[in-house]
Design a protein around this nucleic acid. Structure first.
Lengths: 336, 336
DNA sequence: CTGTTAGCGCGTTCAA
DNA sequence: TTGAACGCGCTAACAG
């Protein structure tokens, strides 16, 4: 069970441990006699030697590890981000270590703490809420931090995000084109900047186009199906005249709203049009297939990974902001 | 950017590093003067000291880390497993480190290698295929290995699995009850034991009940939507008389098959009944909601985590095998 | 109660 | 081309 060490290999071959170290290090291998080198490699293989990255990190100050803080892995929207991240980090031989906050601040703190204890070479935060800003900035004094997917306004850390305002405006434009004049939005938690931006841009664009926005008192505590359903129910309960179109702040909430509408025997899109956000995988499969705003998840992941790498190499980095795109499917139709 | 060390804290307080070490270690804190202890704690907080887990691990031989090898995080079926795992490991203050094989053997090898280099305290393999057995057994000589979710027949490592044969029999029973007499199965890759077991049990149970099984020549190379669609198309192309019910080896493949059927203008369940497997989150939302076999993902994750912990404490462990349960929804109906 | 010493596995000096 | 010595940050063992 005990792993062999450099010393074990050295003893086996009859050379000094440093020689083994050199022979096994691609950069320094040239400095060693080809013959001893082969002998070392052979012995290492035979003994099943593997470098001890912890020990190496102690020496080098690097762990070849990047901490990734996600909010909820159960949200299929994050998987492509992580895929992109992994692919980007792979080229620098960095390994992502993923943890979930479940959108609880206290867990966020614990996770960040843990990652700093682990001495990750960088942190990529996909789960930032307004209240997390302080600890993120604090962490940034110890290790490079990249804010991605969820913007953190007024924060100087490098950010890789997406234009949520533009996305919300695309939605209003789409509904306007379809002739809707009375709409509502199901808001996600507003301390997540994406939702705040979507909410404000949606309202502003409605006003600009002369569309009536029905106020929804409730806001989703988390961007989940359950909350989407709850907020939709509160809308349907309070307003005597149901809007002809509803914009949910993400696809999960839209699907929850679908349930609420169905329970009220309201048909989508005949009675009310419904729009989501993110273009989450599988949202084209629900009934009806959801009109949504495409969020470039994989690209955000790749860019965030690249920014992290650049930071590690002390390069200057610019913030990245990617564009949305409306995906029109069957959950929206012309207003009657 | 440089993190403070024990020595920094010691210098600050004017004591020896070991004293700081003791003061900060909950187990040994009692051995230290309450006054100095408070002074140490204060200085540590002020300096932003965090223990260096790498260094600690070098000393203790433990990293407080468990490697988790998944096949595909994009498959929503695995998320609950990882949640369960995380919850179970949390009580022992272990952190999962997740990596994806994408069902490629070469990646599996690389990942395992990397994890051993990291000296994870244990490995939990959720992605095992028949061809991975050798390297898993080899890894097990270096660190505890738990096989979970995907069984590895004829392998002595501890396993946490589920009775796939029973699941397949539930499907046949369900179809039989509905009066189906001509059925087919869309098989996943047979070097994943789950699919092999499902395939064999399905065939055997059909024979036992006098149901005709239409042979499908193709097998899914991976258990994905794309492959489900491809295999379904091969079935629909070759057989002049379409079976009245189809069993897809998992929900993703079932959804792919749905696309193929739709393209042929075959309606589910009116023209053909369709059954999936896993009860993947969101499969109740597709149109029509999918009849499927519930796979206890979270429970498998929890059990696998507990087995890993037991192994770390040198306890004896028994294999775990959990039961399936049929979830009847709208994609199946009585045969006409 | 606290200081000293040694060593975990490795890479990086500096010599030979 | 190789060896010897040191230190990365920490904890365990032993003194005092």
């Amino acid at each position: 069970m005990a792993m062999p060490t450099l010393d074990d290999v050295a003893r086996e071959v009859g050379v000094h441990p440093s020689t083994v170290s050199r022979a096994l290090n691609p950069n320094k291998a040239a400095l060693v006699n080809p013959e001893t080198r082969r002998a070392v490699e052979e012995a290492a293989r035979r003994l099943g030697y593997r470098p001890h990255m912890g020990a190496r990190g102690l020496q080098s100050g690097r762990t070849a590890t990047v901490g990734v803080v996600a909010a909820d892995l159960g949200n299929p929207f994050v998987t492509p981000i992580i895929h992109g991240l992994t692919a980007a980090l792979e080229v620098a031989e960095l390994m992502p270590v993923v943890a979930e906050t479940q959108d609880e601040h206290e867990r966020f703190v614990r996770i960040l703490d843990h990652m700093l204890s682990r001495r990750v070479d960088a942190v990529i935060a996909l789960a930032a809420r307004a209240g997390d800003r302080h600890i993120l900035e604090e962490a940034a004094r110890a290790t490079p931090v990249v804010i991605a997917a969820r913007p953190l306004p007024g924060c100087d850390l490098p950010q890789v995000v997406h234009d949520d305002g533009a996305g919300a405006r695309l939605v209003v434009e789409h509904l306007h084109d379809l002739g809707h004049t009375r709409v509502a939005q199901l808001r996600g938690p507003l301390d997540v900047a994406n939702f705040d931006h979507r909410a404000k841009a949606f309202t502003a664009e409605c006003q600009a186009r002369g569309i009536v926005e029905v106020e929804v008192p409730e806001t989703g505590a988390r961007p989940t199906m359950q909350e989407g359903r709850r907020v939709a129910e509160s809308l349907l309960r309070q307003s005597d005249r149901v809007p002809s179109a509803i914009f949910a702040h993400n696809d999960l909430m839209a699907i929850g709203a679908l349930g609420a509408l169905r329970a009220m025997e309201l048909h989508v899109p005949d009675d009310v049009s419904l729009v989501g956000y993110n273009d989450t995988p599988m949202t084209d499969l629900v009934a009806p297939p959801l009109t949504t705003v495409h969020y470039p998840s994989r690209e955000v992941g790749v860019a965030a990974g690249q920014v992290a790498i650049a930071l590690l190499q002390d390069e200057e980095v610019d913030d990245v902001c990617l564009d949305p795109r409306l995906v029109s499917r069957e959950s929206t139709q012309r207003a009657r």
